[in-house]
């Protein structure tokens, strides 16, 4: 069995409001992710799943607990963990090509080499002809392809994806899921993928961490034992896929605050 690449123990995150009140976003999170695993973090909004991802990224500090990546405690961001954000977060003043080259240039890769690698990645996500465009000239789906290429360019060991397809329309989302799965099945990078989409999580993942809200805790870890390479049309009629989707939807349904709240 492979060594755990990410190890999270007793993680807790508390946000202190100026008025002295504090909000516990995450409590008692334990999670281990193996190298090459695709793990989704699924949960209702407000369960702290993005917060968890940001802490693995080193962008925000935990209140208690430990995160280790490849045996080393996380205390800051680093090029071993490449983020992809829902809002794309492309540098708007850089062209598409310059965005994809950026991480390599920061790491002092010679310009010609960075350029060649960036062009190859842009071709991979079918955006070669758009290399000299500014991000504002592209559609949302195209921007997210650029963002994925930009992160893949500097070859992080782990991809941290924060609802990367959440801002896209259904059709574009499906296309990008297929593309991501294709890329992943080729190079098997470790992926931590935050989502609130059940079918997306089942389609992509090896394991799904189901979280409950306020405070965010790990509710259940579901193993997705579906064969790869996966084809959407085949999965949709696969009994195991259907059972997993139904099970997860039932779990999330229970957690919906509206079911137990005043408006039910």
């Amino acid at each position: 069995m492979a060594e755990n690449l990410i190890e999270i123990e007793g993680l807790r995150k508390q946000f202190d409001a100026p008025g002295g009140q504090s909000h516990i976003a995450l409590e008692g999170i334990d999670l281990a992710v193996r190298e090459g695993e695709f793990v989704s973090i699924l949960g209702p909004s407000g369960c702290g799943k993005s917060t968890l991802l940001y802490m693995v990224g080193g962008f925000i500090a935990p209140s208690a607990g430990r995160i280790r990546v490849a045996g080393t405690a996380v205390d800051r961001p680093g090029p071993d963990r490449g983020p992809v954000f829902q809002e794309f977060a492309l540098f708007p003043w850089k062209t598409v090509l310059q965005n994809v080259m950026y991480g390599l240039r920061v790491q002092n890769v010679p310009k010609a080499m960075a350029r060649a690698r960036a062009m190859a990645l842009l071709d991979m996500v079918n955006l070669g002809p758009y290399a000299d465009f500014f991000p504002k000239q592209l559609s949302g789906g195209m921007r997210q392809r650029v963002a994925i290429a930009r992160t893949l360019a500097y070859e992080p060991r782990i991809l941290l994806m924060d609802e990367p397809f959440g801002a896209l329309d259904a059709h574009t989302r499906t296309n990008l899921q297929n593309e991501l799965l294709g890329i992943w099945e080729r190079d098997r990078k470790t992926v931590l993928f935050v989502t609130h989409g059940v079918d997306e999580a089942v389609f992509l993942s090896d394991r799904i961490v189901v979280m409950s809200a306020s405070p965010g805790r790990v509710d259940e870890i579901v193993v997705v034992d579906l064969p790869r390479p996966r084809v959407r049309a085949e999965l949709l009629v696969d009994r195991r896929y259907q059972d997993l989707v139904l099970h997860l939807e039932a779990r999330l349904e229970v957690m919906q605050p509206s079911r137990t709240g005043a408006f039910s």
Partner: peptide
Amino acid sequence: VDEKLVWSARAMGM
């Protein structure tokens, strides 16, 4: 300035 832009640059090692 969008915090995620700063984060993206930090992740690259800037």
